[in-house]
Amino acid sequence: MANFNLKINGKTQQLDVDPTTPILWVLRDHLKLVGTKYGCGISQCGACTIHLGDNAVRSCQLPVSAVGNQEITTIEGLSENGDHPVQKAWLEEDVYQCGYCQAGQIMNASAFLKKNPNPTDEEIEGAMNGNICRCGTYIRIKKAIKTAANSKTV
């Protein structure tokens, strides 16, 4: 066990955990931030996507000891009132079916749009390929990403 000070969603969190613990389980088990989902544990499905600084990363294979001072943002901290343009676009397009993968999709899409505010369809597909939606809402996800891009506020 070891002590860590993590910056998560603008707050500093003190923790005493096994340093190999992936951030996913730190969030879910220790901090009760359960918006970040467990899907595969091997960085294949994207359900656990969070932001480390400005980058979308898979939290299921990111040990707590590797984070250091970098700022972590989870779905709970993406916006204060659930009104990030990507979240609004998801609501607008009524994207989800079961909804389980969508936090990861939203986190990946929001980091992507920050870097590429006007993506082509191919660029969206390439950027989102690591996020599985088992229900098959891919067309709506793509549409929502375009809606968010067109809102010009990302």
Partner: peptide, 29 residues
């Protein structure tokens, strides 16, 4: 008509909704 999913806002903000998210104080895993 088309009515939006009643859980939409909870889904996009990562609220605990699913079985895996359930927590009760004192429970073991």
């Amino acid at each position: 008509t088309s009515v939006k999913n009643v859980d939409g806002e909870k889904i996009v903000t990562g609220k605990p909704l699913f079985g895996l998210d359930f927590h009760r104080d004192g429970m073991q895993l």
